[in-house]
Nucleic acid binder design. Structure first.
Lengths: 142, 142
DNA sequence: ATCTATTTAGTCAATTTGATAAATTTTTGC
DNA sequence: GCAAAAATTTATCAAATTGACTAAATAGAT
């Protein structure tokens, strides 16, 4: 069970995953060892999977992204998943229910490369059809 | 300009943003102060926007997600963006080009709540039509 | 080739960490 | 309501890490 405190801790870590345990303890008004125990527990139990970094600025400028909805031929689902995982520009892949079967998030350093990857995906054996949405702007993330 | 070293450093931080500067320096075979300087610079220049946490396990189990593609009435674009930002379950919002104008990522603790939010979005003034994809499984993220 | 600017190496004291033990509080089952 | 179990707090230690700094080395420009 995730307690109220766990949620508060997670919230802080979401905002700054590099905060020291000491800082976190102060902000939560808990003892350092409690916070340290909680973090250890959350890591061990898989709630905290990893710590990552949000990039922006110059990095984001040299990066274009698209969301690709994919309709797959049922029989080739497994194969298609594997093939998509081979494509390095595919940074996230979701199985979804609805009109489409998969959603792939693709990132590339230029529109040309992005376009090439979109073609590549569209031409996979198991892919029936795709709808691509090139990201123009990230309105927000939270 | 982002040097080769910057990219290597970013790569490490993506994998574990809580790694100590000392560890990072060891892995990159650079001095600690070099790494510290680089990190400071990357933060100041906006390349590193923040440090965050990837959640899974029990947390992910109590969380359902959907990708919602949204076609907006041009005139009401600004208003719709604001309204979407008001909805707390909308955790990401992108302006996109293609068949749709926006993509909203929605997270909720239950299918019921998710469904309610999807309805809410569909009923916004400026929203022409939506296509929702409920995430069944995250195949991978990287 | 030399001057400048950037990058890297090294050093210090102060802070933070991880690990552990023991005391206290809270939660839970019965 | 109370006893047992679990969680939290306080305290301690040596080891590791940090931030701030100075000096050395390297790269770039003219």
């Amino acid at each position: 069970m995730l307690s109220k405190q766990d949620h508060r801790l997670i919230e802080l870590l979401r905002r700054n995953a590099r905060a020291s345990v000491t800082e976190l303890a102060k902000a939560l008004d808990l003892s350092r060892s409690t916070v340290q125990n909680r973090i250890n527990r959350l890591e061990a139990s898989g709630v905290i999977r990893s710590y990552s970094v949000e990039l922006g600025g110059e990095y984001a400028l040299n990066r274009v992204e698209a969301h690709v909805s994919i309709k797959v031929q049922q029989k080739l689902t497994a194969k298609t998943n594997l093939e998509l995982e081979q494509i390095n520009r595919v940074v996230q892949l979701y199985a979804v229910s609805g009109e489409y079967d998969l959603i792939a998030i693709v990132q590339a350093p230029s529109l040309e490369e992005l376009s090439a990857v979109l073609d590549e995906i569209g031409n996979l054996d198991g892919v029936d059809r795709t709808t691509s949405s090139v990201v123009l702007e990230t309105k927000f993330r939270r």
